[in-house]
Simulated scan of single mutants.
Amino acid sequence: MDGTEKPRRITMTPAARRALVAAERLFYERGIHAVGVDLIAAEAGVTKKTLYDRFGSKEQIVVEYLAHRDERWRAFLAERLDAAPPEPVARVLAVFGASRAWSSENSPKGCSMVNAHAEISDPAHPAHAIITGQKRWMLGLFTRLAGGVAPEGAERLARSLMLLHEGALVAHGLNVFPDPFTHAREEAHALLTAGRGGRA
């Protein structure tokens, strides 16, 4: 897989869903390499055979874990963007607010994609495309939103916004300083309103 193809997904049965819930919690809390299929099966109350029958491999469980997190995040963000004021700057800043809320509720140890990439850096791994795909999607989102603020410089502005956003994710996960998302949002606001007399 070259990072552009979509990985195979499976149809979820009740047993597979229970296993995925257990895998999500274990992978996020302990790390992907540290968690074996035996532990997932035990936590989910299913047999190891059932896991392999449903998923085929641990790699596929990882794919489902990350893909499910990604789907949940995109839906969460879409709700907040739908509720945001229509003004272009406000819509960009809504992304930072959404990330702050999501991280508080779902990601106390930082971004699951960043954490997973520390363990899965091989582009041939089927989950690699999900990790990089989410970040490319975020950059595309920032580029579209930045186009409403600075049509001629949207790409450059989006990259700066992405750096602020990803830096906040990492700082949050490492607990480097309090409330990095608010700091990143304030820096983004300054960047977005530069040359506009500070108008939001």
Rank of each mutant, 00 (worst) to 15 (best):
H68I: 00
G198C: 04
R196A: 13
A127H: 09
L145F: 09
G140N: 08
L141N: 07
A168F: 03
E71K: 12
E24P: 00
V92A: 13
S160D: 13
W73Y: 14
E166Y: 05
A101N: 06
I131A: 04
G56I: 08
S57R: 08
F177I: 01
R156D: 14
E5C: 08
G173R: 09
W73A: 09
G56D: 09
P14T: 03
R72Y: 14
R74G: 01
T193N: 08
L161F: 06
V95Y: 04
G56E: 08
T4N: 06
S112T: 11
R74I: 03
K6I: 07
P85D: 15
M162P: 02
R25P: 04
G110T: 01
L169R: 03
A84C: 07
H117G: 10
A15Y: 06
P178D: 12
H33E: 15
G31C: 03
F27P: 05
A83P: 08
A118V: 02
E5G: 12
A67N: 13
K49D: 14
T11G: 12
G36F: 11
A171P: 06
A90Q: 15
D122I: 07
T13W: 13
A44E: 04
A116T: 12
A34G: 08
Y65V: 14
V149A: 04
V63F: 09
R159W: 13
E119T: 12
D53I: 09
S160G: 12
W137Q: 04
S107N: 09
F142S: 11
V114E: 09
R199N: 10
L93K: 03
M113K: 00
D53K: 11
N175I: 00
R91L: 05
V92D: 09
A84M: 07
L169T: 05
K109H: 10
T143P: 01
G36R: 12
R80P: 07
S104R: 14
G197Q: 05
L26F: 10
F76N: 01
S112P: 06
N106L: 06
L93I: 02
A83R: 15
V89H: 08
E105N: 08
A41M: 11
I130T: 13
E166W: 01
I32H: 05
H68Q: 15
E186Q: 09
G110H: 01
L26Y: 07
N106I: 00
L66T: 10
M12V: 10
A118N: 12
A168I: 01
H33N: 14
A34S: 14
Q60E: 05
